[in-house]
Design a binder for these strands. Structure first.
Length: 474
DNA sequence: TATATGTTGTC
DNA sequence: ACAACATAT
């Protein structure tokens, strides 16, 4: 009996369907012991932020309910992870530990140490893929090197063909012996101040919530092609937090979309899944890019460390309506539309000249889908210092972007209600309008809505001049 | 998945 | 007057 006991170590694979490690553990023997170990310090310097912890709390609850429905349970312990695993082995006589791989540098190193220690102790330690269509070392250039440009990476992935079809969720699981477990509340993942009510209203964490979201999105996925850039519409999948926590797998998403649209009408969306793969590829092969620019010349970029500017951006008080709408959507819901992420990021980095790392940190703490791979890629792309980077001179004009992608102003009116009565023409450039006109809509700039933090045209010139300075010494 | 500006074409 | 396009950043 004990020789068949397998510890199933859950981390960010919080689902029961399409779970290779779970499947292998069931095949191996009659006893599977699901465990979650809370050890945030092992992920330093990128331990989960506040929004992620809220999500994790909910997701662990959902996973525990699902496991109990199938006759099993979720044992919850505190780290250090290796100590907790050893303790469980002593308590259960387990002879194997299975888990799903992650790709953050600190986690890779932690897992490597644990795998080695377990094997030296005669335990079968085995990891599985659960998070990616193609793991980072399975895609390489003809030179055998990692990709640094998206399009060739995308083609290489296409050449690898469709992933295997997802595994079904088990209908029953073996019962587990009586073991001590913490309550989820004991992990204190929820903040003492209840700032998360807006987040709770917007999301259903957990496998069921993820599958519901996928089921709702798959039929309308073709809309993604034409409406993806419209934050005032609901045309994106909003699957990112579910994917981050592994509540659904990219294989499940891939096949649900493919089967709903065999003609290829949803290819633009599937291409975005490959961006996610690309981000993990880069994180794995260039692990320093979480904090350092991939292009070294950006190390001497003359950033401004103006805390006042950073704070205004964080609070959504920049005086640029589309930027403020995005930052407030983020604060209230733990999420921001991707087009708006690019706009607010460009504003922070290029208009305010605040280091991209400061923006990445804020996103890390406030996004429910905060993901080290995606976050690092996104910020470096915006700053122009990363792989496949936007050339530095691509500077978003927040007024133009607003007019183009929020043409009716509905997104701004929703998240910046003090501007709700201003007519659409000129809503996105409220700083250019005269006082009387705004007074008629009940707005006094500087009292009801902040004056523009910087003049975009001048800020653009300053950013280009700063870039010119680092370029000259290339 | 950029923008500002200048030139050319069309009415 | 303004769209369409080219080009520099």
């Amino acid at each position: 009996m004990s020789s068949e006991t397998t510890i199933l170590w859950f981390r960010r694979d919080l689902r029961l369907a399409d779970h290779d490690a779970l499947n292998a553990a069931r095949v191996r023997g009659s006893c599977v012991i699901p465990v979650f170990i809370w050890a945030p310090e092992e992920e330093a310097p990128w331990q989960p932020g506040a929004a992620s912890r809220w999500w994790l709390h909910q997701s662990l609850h959902a996973l525990r309910v699902s496991l109990r429905e199938l006759g099993s349970d979720l044992i919850i312990r505190r780290g250090p992870s290796l100590d907790a695993i050893r303790q469980l082995i002593a308590e259960t006589g387990a002879t194997a530990v299975y888990w799903s791989r992650l790709y953050e540098p600190a986690v890779i190193e932690r897992d490597r140490v644990i795998k080695t220690a377990l094997r030296e102790a005669g335990i079968e330690a085995k990891s599985f893929n659960a998070a990616l269509l193609h793991e980072p070392w399975t895609v390489q250039t003809t030179q055998g090197k990692p990709y640094q440009v998206f399009t060739p990476f995308y083609r290489a992935c296409q050449a690898l063909g469709d992933p295997s079809t997802p595994l079904k969720k088990p209908t029953a699981l073996p019962p587990i012996p009586a073991l001590a477990s913490l309550e989820i509340d004991a992990l204190e993942l929820l903040p003492s101040i209840r700032w998360y009510t807006g987040i709770a209203a917007a999301w259903q964490p957990g496998e069921e919530g993820g599958l519901k979201r996928l089921g709702g999105f798959a039929p309308i996925a073709p809309r993604y092609k034409s409406e993806r850039d419209r934050p005032d519409l609901e045309s994106t999948s909003r699957l990112s937090p579910h994917l981050h926590f592994g509540e659904i797998s990219p294989r499940q998403v891939w096949w649900a979309i493919r089967k709903a649209h065999p003609g290829g009408a949803a290819e633009p969306y599937l291409r975005q899944l490959i961006w996610r793969e690309f981000a993990h590829h880069l994180l794995y092969h260039f692990p320093h890019t979480t904090s350092e620019p991939l292009r070294p010349e950006f190390k001497r970029f003359p950033w401004s460390e103006d805390a006042r500017l950073l704070r205004a951006w964080q609070k959504g008080r920049t005086g640029y309506p589309i930027v403020d709408a995005g930052m407030r959507e983020l604060w209230h819901t733990g999420w921001m539309h991707n087009r708006v992420r690019m706009i607010v990021a460009s504003f922070l980095v290029k208009d305010l000249l605040v280091p991209w790392q400061a923006g990445a940190r804020w996103f890390w703490d406030t996004l429910v889908d905060a993901d080290l791979a995606n976050n690092s890629l996104g910020w470096q792309w915006t700053a122009g210092c990363g792989a496949d980077a936007a050339p530095y001179f691509r500077i978003f004009n927040p007024a133009l972007q607003g007019e183009k992608f929020d043409p009716d102003g509905a997104y701004v009116r929703r998240w910046v209600p003090e501007l709700a009565r201003i007519d659409t023409r000129g809503l996105h450039r409220v700083f250019e309008r005269d006082r009387q006109e705004l007074a008629a809509a009940g707005v006094e700039v500087g009292r009801d809505y902040p004056a523009a933090l910087v003049d975009h045209s001048a800020a653009r010139d300053a950013a280009l001049a700063a870039y010119d300075r680092i370029k000259r010494f290339e």
